[in-house]
């Protein structure tokens, strides 16, 4: 069941085409990751979906409701966590959620049990009376998520929710998110399914999404499951060890078979031109020896999403 449907969205600001022909079809139970550089159009896309901007062209339906014609019904199904979500530091955890609930028109009978359920879900139930200003960064993050969840949205839009958050908190946040989608909060009926769009600059997070879209210059230039995207570079990433590493790097970078060299602390990763891995291995061994270095290991490794990101960013 499609929960987020966008067709051929366009949005310009002056001469800048921030979003330039984006289409999305995201089903219940999916976490869709939008990845891309600063200014690629990720945030603008989310803001179009949440109804904060009107597209210059294109259509959006949230849970089957057209956002232009059935605006309220569409918006009522959306939870949005912006990059800089605001909390009222002087209010307690519960008061903060209550505020968001009342803004969205929930009555006390509705919001109180729901808030407690959500606070339990994000692990903040024991802190409901603590002032938001006294929460750790990770707890604030969870309170932000709880606030976005209070209306029980079927569509959750998260704009870089984990930027600047430490690894343990990020891990917790993702476990919550995956649970939310895989095992929706108990409620009546079968409308409980949730779809999520998340933007992130972290490739380890991108790899946890069900599907990804790589954005560049306002367009989605590649999309698919993390495995699909990695398969683009299958057989083209080679790991090298040897000495001296800097010599290896310089030699490798000069070979015509090598498209890209990434130096790590104790090894190199090369991206090879399609179909050239045999030729590259032989050429490398020769060139490294000729330059006075030694090669101790050259083996193909699985491409990472970071490899894919860099390859896509380099495309003209």
């Amino acid at each position: 069941m499609t929960l987020i449907l966008a067709s051929d969205l366009h949005k310009s600001f002056g001469a800048t085409n921030a979003v330039n022909g984006v289409s999305l079809d995201i089903a219940a139970g999916e976490i869709y990751g939008l990845v891309g550089s600063d200014g690629a159009g990720k945030t603008t896309t989310l803001r179009l979906l949440v109804g904060a901007f009107q597209p210059d062209r294109g259509e959006i339906a949230i849970g089957g409701c057209d956002i232009a014609r059935q605006t309220e019904q569409a918006r009522a199904q959306v939870g949005y966590l912006s990059q800089r979500f605001s909390l009222y530091e002087d209010l307690t955890v519960l008061e903060n959620i209550r505020f968001f609930a009342e803004v969205r028109g929930l009555t006390r009978d509705e919001w109180l049990p729901r808030c407690m359920e959500i606070l339990a879900f994000v692990g903040l139930a024991d802190f409901k009376d603590r002032r938001a200003g006294q929460l750790s960064g990770g707890m604030k993050q969870k309170l932000g998520l709880a606030s976005a969840l209070v209306t029980r949205p079927r569509v959750l839009l998260l704009d870089e929710p984990t930027t600047g958050v430490d690894p343990v908190t990020r891990q917790d946040f993702w476990q919550l998110l995956i649970r939310l989608v895989a095992f929706p909060l108990a409620q009546a009926g079968d409308g409980a399914d949730v779809a999520v769009i998340i933007t992130t600059p972290y490739m380890d997070e991108a790899s946890r999404c069900h599907r990804l879209g790589f954005m560049r210059a306002g367009q989605i230039i590649a999309s698919g499951t993390p495995s699909d995207l990695r398969a683009r570079l299958q057989g083209r990433i080679m790991e090298l060890r040897g000495a001296p590493l800097d010599l290896l790097r310089r030699v490798a970078a000069q070979l015509p078979e090598v498209e890209n060299v990434r130096l790590f602390g104790d090894r190199l990763h090369l991206r090879l031109a399609p179909g050239r891995s045999q030729a590259a291995t032989a050429a490398l061994e020769q060139a490294v020896l000729a330059a006075g270095g030694s090669l101790s290991e050259a083996r193909p490794v699985s491409p990472t999403l970071e490899d894919v990101f860099i390859e896509l960013s380099e495309q003209a």
Partner: peptide, 10 residues
Amino acid sequence: TSGVDPAARR
């Protein structure tokens, strides 16, 4: 490199 994408980070 907080908030910088993988290509720029590279």
